[in-house]
Design a protein around this nucleic acid. Structure first.
Lengths: 195, 195
DNA sequence: GTCTATAGCGTGATAGAC
DNA sequence: GTCTATCACGCTATAGAC
């Protein structure tokens, strides 16, 4: 089958996702036009519709694949020491959030721009991730290594604290990632009463 | 001076601000039209421009007045015990955030939709508030009551943790505000090494 | 202060050529 | 798969009547 003029299907798809993610994160879904995305990619707006049925599906795909990537990347070791598992989680969450800061930002800022059905699916994935942390806290409490009044609230509090790194982190700043992980692990360990 | 037909200047201004705040917080600044705000208030879109020069100024006014209200509401007692001051801050921040959740959400979600000049002014106000907490932590460290590696990061971490309450809190939920304050104070106290 | 009407422009999405 | 052209609509903001 002969290639049609100017076709670059193998790279255009990923480029659309990359630029859309970046633009949505920086300006907000509603503020970004399909023309703007197309311009960043280097195609005309009409060409985008060969890859996505509409703008909403593009947003949902970005958020869903991010949540699936996050869940797939987190590898718990349920048999290990709960404190060690918590330290792993803290360092993992910070590292993943900084490596995918646009997707992280998108996935908790643009929930409101999803259709109700799409919203429910993302919320479900998010809930699974929160449960992963909550289970660590419950195991830590049960084993007497952690002291937390309310594991559910502690889960939300810790995730909010850790994700907050993306709000101020700048590449090449005062602290490197290892050091940031150390500091946040110290805060988290204290918060769960295991200082 | 005779009143013109249908004029309700005394209440329209606040109503515009109230509805704009609510709509911006729920749907995002870019996704809300001036017509939508006007409709919620009960006037035609053109009438809004008697109260604001444009949409951007309306957003900025909402954010700036929120930050000023926040700074005015926080009353530190520099002479008191640093731990007591931290507890006060924790309970204050959660209470204020829940009482003004739309404004809180707006003020950290829509920074990207401000002009650079307006952005700098909001960032300055936010910085002052962060400094208020940072000073408590520094005093706590100096007095040997707190153990924190990096007061700057601990400040960002604590504020992110506390503000996160607005993400999941629902009126009439499992926990009342007092109890939520107790739990978060426990987490914060532990995080700063004062459990 | 509020209304109606509208200018001027940008939007998401589609049709049809290549 | 990409382009050009376009439809139909919504947007911010303004003008002028009352």
């Amino acid at each position: 089958m002969a290639r049609t003029q100017g076709s670059r299907a193998d790279i255009t798809g990923p480029l659309i996702r990359d630029h859309a993610r970046r633009l949505f994160a920086r300006q907000g879904y509603a503020a970004v036009s399909m023309r703007q995305i197309a311009s960043a990619v280097g195609v005309q707006a009409g060409a985008l519709y060969a890859y996505t049925p509409d703008k909403q599906a593009l947003l949902f795909d970005l958020m869903e694949s991010h949540m699936r990537d996050l869940l797939a990347a987190w590898q718990d070791e349920p048999a290990a020491d709960p404190l060690q598992r918590l330290e792993n989680f803290v360092r993992f969450h910070i590292g993943f959030s900084l490596d995918h800061s646009d997707a992280v930002f998108l996935s908790y800022m643009e929930l409101r721009n999803l259709t109700p059905d799409n919203h429910a699916r993302i919320a479900d994935l998010r809930g699974r991730y929160e449960t992963a942390l909550e289970n660590i806290l419950r195991d830590g409490i049960e084993s007497g290594m952690m002291f937390v009044d309310d594991p559910k609230l502690a889960t939300m509090a810790l995730i909010a604290m850790l994700t907050g790194v993306t709000n101020w982190y700048r590449e090449g700043g005062r602290l490197d990632r290892q050091r940031i992980g150390d500091i946040y692990w110290g805060l988290a360990r204290g918060a769960v009463g295991a200082a």
